[in-house]
């Protein structure tokens, strides 16, 4: 389980790979967190809930990653872990300059280059507009 960076001229492109859906969602949490605050430790001090939206697993995963970007932009909420369900729980804490190093902002998750598959392993390819 994890992600690897792929070449891209201006933005951030990554391949996420996990054995199952839970692993892929957690990998997305790790990717978003590490993109915005690097290796700064993030504790599960509070929780946010998200109701899955989308007709299929591909769209639901895309919208989940987009929710992570939204939570950080609006509240500075940094995700630590995720538990999937009818109401998905995202645990983490809000950015605090004393504890976290600001690395960069993700403007958006693009539909360009988005790929998703559950054939054997769960994989997704994402491009973040930075």
């Amino acid at each position: 389980m994890g992600y690897t960076y792929l070449p891209h001229t201006a933005d951030l492109r990554a391949l996420l790979d996990a054995a199952d859906g839970d692993g892929l969602y957690q990998t997305a949490v790790d990717l978003v967190r590490e993109t915005v605050v690097g290796e700064s430790p993030v504790a599960a001090r509070e929780e946010r809930r998200w109701t899955p939206i989308g007709d299929d697993a591909e769209e639901r995963f895309f919208r989940f990653v987009r929710e992570l970007v939204f939570l950080y932009d609006v509240d500075g909420f940094l995700p630590a872990w995720v538990r999937r369900g009818e109401s998905t729980v995202i645990a983490g804490e809000c950015f605090a300059a004393m504890r976290h190093t600001s690395e960069r902002q993700i403007k958006a998750v693009t539909r360009h280059g988005y790929r998703f598959s559950t054939d054997g392993r769960w994989r997704a390819e994402l491009i973040f507009d930075l």
Binding site: H8, T9, A10, D11, T110, R111, H112, G113, I127, D129
Partner: peptide, 9 residues
């Protein structure tokens, strides 16, 4: 120009 998303930059 360079690689964008949808349109090129």
């Amino acid at each position: 120009m360079h690689w964008g998303y949808g349109f090129p930059i």
